[in-house]
């Protein structure tokens, strides 16, 4: 088993995988397996959820709060390039080899998530290719949208 995810255990009403929009109308087996592998965590404002370069062992579903995705350079040590919030997912590095985070993620406000064990959930996807394909087709539009957003950001449209 992976080390436990960062963050404090939750003490409030438990979060449920099937109530997250990402899993809406996905195959019940995927939802059931994700729930089996999920750990609920909460983060205070400013807490780091993932760090650039760390092993990407968890798939995060955000239920409450707001998370900043940051990249670093010598000139800009903490440049926020995107924020994600309730109903969204945090990253896909857990799915793509070599499974290391490519950015920092920091809570901008008190944040509650479900952290799903990435390696075990990958094994579930591999064991059920049709359902795995369904899962990827749910994730792919999110990746495509973020890629398109990045391309537009690169145009620096407000500076034209």
């Amino acid at each position: 088993m992976s080390a436990l995810p960062r963050g404090a255990p939750a003490h409030e009403v438990p979060l449920r995988v099937e109530e997250h929009p990402f899993f809406e109308r996905l195959d019940p087996l995927l939802t059931r397996e994700a729930a089996r592998l999920a750990w609920e965590r909460q983060f205070d404002t400013g807490a780091m959820i993932v760090r650039d370069g760390d092993p990407a062992e968890w798939f995060y579903l955000i239920f409450q709060g707001k998370v900043a995705l940051e990249i670093a350079s010598a000139e800009k040590p903490h440049l926020t390039i995107q924020t994600v919030g309730p109903g969204e997912v945090l990253g896909w590095s857990w799915l793509v080899a070599p499974h290391f985070w490519r950015f920092d993620a920091r809570a901008l406000k008190p944040t509650r998530v479900l952290a799903i064990e990435g390696a075990k959930f990958r094994a579930v996807l591999a064991a059920h290719p049709e359902k795995g394909y369904q899962f990827l087709m749910r994730l792919l539009p999110i990746i495509a949208q973020r890629l398109e957003n990045t391309q537009i950001q690169l145009l620096d449209i407000h500076g034209l």
Binding site: H78, L79, Q82, T83, N149
Partner: peptide, 19 residues
């Protein structure tokens, strides 16, 4: 309100308006 990029002094949204 959202901005394309920000430093840590900004606690609002970051991303395109389309997001």
């Amino acid at each position: 309100v959202t901005v394309d990029a920000a430093d840590r002094s900004w606690y609002g949204d970051v991303g395109l308006v389309t997001a």
